[in-house]
Amino acid sequence: MMIRWIWTRESQREIQKVKAQYDRDVSTIKSDMEARYRETLTERRRAAATLELELEKERQRVKGYKQALVSQSQQLMEERKQLQQERESLEEEKQKLVKSGAAGALLHQALEKEQNWYNRATATLKELEGLLVERQNAYCSLIQPRDQRLEMEKNMLLKVVKDPIGPDLDLETDLKDIFKRDKHCAELLNMDRRKNGSLMWVYLKYWQLQITVQKHKRAEEAILGGKIHSDTK
């Protein structure tokens, strides 16, 4: 009986010892897991804060771009409005001169001489429109290489530098502005290339108004410079 009691007591001690060791091991593992969890949580919070900061910077950059684009568009619209007013004013002057007999005939003659220049300028703008549509399609394409678009832009700049109307309209500067700022693309499944682009369409209307005004100014300069003479005696 005594031997059984001693064995039972020793067994209880071993059980208590193992249990105590188990509790210590569990406590150590729990502490280690909590420490790792806190470390992971801290890293994730730090990463989230970094991403939030980068996102805010990107938001500010996009906001700045939108503000610049709105400002640029407003400026172009104001210039377009001014050119429209100048064209209307020139048209009024034209009608007055037409009613004044010899002066009207003189203006008509001068405008006829400038019609060839106007037709060439209009053809150049039409060609440039097609090239801009292709360039914007390349910009919006997910598969077309960037180098190919840059080559298009380079060729367009070379073209307007060599074209006689390029310097008159300052097309080189305006094209560079389009390449830098016009990032508008239609929805992904859009099949109409002419729906791409935003700023480029404003510029195309602006250029067309410019050549209309230029035509009348060139005719006026020809008359004042004595290059056009009346046939009346």
Results as ranks from 00 to 15, higher is better:
Lys154Ile: 09
Asn196Thr: 08
Gly225His: 04
Glu127Tyr: 07
Glu92Ile: 10
Leu171Pro: 00
Thr40Gln: 13
Ile143Gly: 01
Val202Gln: 04
Ile143Val: 14
Leu188Ile: 12
Arg44Phe: 08
Arg87Ser: 10
Lys113Arg: 15
Asn137Cys: 08
Lys126Met: 12
Ala68Gly: 03
Lys94Gln: 05
Arg120Ala: 05
Arg80His: 12
Gly64Asp: 14
Leu128Phe: 09
Arg87Asn: 08
Leu128Arg: 00
Ser73His: 08
Val213Asp: 04
Cys140Trp: 06
Leu204Glu: 00
Gln84Val: 07
Leu106Pro: 03
Gln148Trp: 13
Ser89Thr: 13
Glu93Met: 06
Ser100Lys: 09
Gln210Arg: 13
Glu134Met: 08
Leu83Met: 13
Ser198Arg: 11
Leu158Arg: 09
Ala138His: 07
Lys99Thr: 08
Trp7Asn: 11
Leu51Tyr: 04
Gln21Val: 06
Leu51Trp: 06
Met152Lys: 11
Tyr139Cys: 02
Ala222Ile: 00
Asp25His: 03
Asp174His: 11
Tyr37Ile: 04
Ser71Tyr: 10
Arg80Gly: 10
Gln148Val: 10
Gly104Pro: 00
Thr28Ser: 10
Ser89Gln: 15
Gly225Cys: 04
Arg59Ile: 06
Ala49His: 07
Arg38Gln: 15
Trp117Pro: 07
Lys162Pro: 04
Gln85Phe: 08
Gln16Phe: 08
Glu129Arg: 11
Cys140Thr: 01
Gln74Arg: 13
Asp182Pro: 02
Tyr203Ile: 09
Tyr65Gly: 09
Leu224Glu: 15
Lys30Pro: 05
Val213Phe: 04
Ser100Tyr: 11
Trp117Met: 01
Lys126Tyr: 08
Leu199Tyr: 05
Ala35Thr: 09
Leu69Thr: 01
Gln210Ser: 14
Gly104Ser: 02
Thr8Leu: 13
Ile228Leu: 01
Lys215Phe: 11
Ile29Ser: 07
Leu175Val: 01
Leu199His: 04
Lys66Leu: 15
Ser141Cys: 04
Leu83Ser: 12
Leu188Tyr: 11
Leu111Val: 05
Ile3Arg: 13
Leu41Ser: 13
Lys183Gln: 12
Lys233His: 14
Lys94Asp: 11
Glu34Ser: 02
Ala35Leu: 08
Leu209His: 02
Ile6Ala: 06
Gln67Val: 14
Arg135Ser: 15
Gln208Phe: 05
Lys205Ile: 06
Gly64Trp: 05
Asn196Leu: 00
Ala68Glu: 02
Thr173Gln: 10
Glu78Ser: 12
Trp7Cys: 10
Gln208Met: 07
Gln85Lys: 15
Lys159Leu: 12
Gln95Pro: 01
Tyr65Asn: 05
Glu221Ala: 15
Asp192Ile: 06
Arg45Cys: 06
Lys30Trp: 01
Ala49Glu: 14
Ser230Cys: 02
Val18Gly: 10
Val202Thr: 12
Arg181Lys: 14
Ile178Thr: 03
Asn190Tyr: 00
Arg194Tyr: 12
Ser89Val: 09
Ala103Phe: 12
Val202Ala: 11
Lys205Met: 15
Leu204Tyr: 03
Leu111Met: 03
Gln60Glu: 10
Lys227Cys: 00
Glu58Asn: 01
Asp163Ile: 06
Met1Trp: 07
Glu220Phe: 09
Glu187Asn: 14
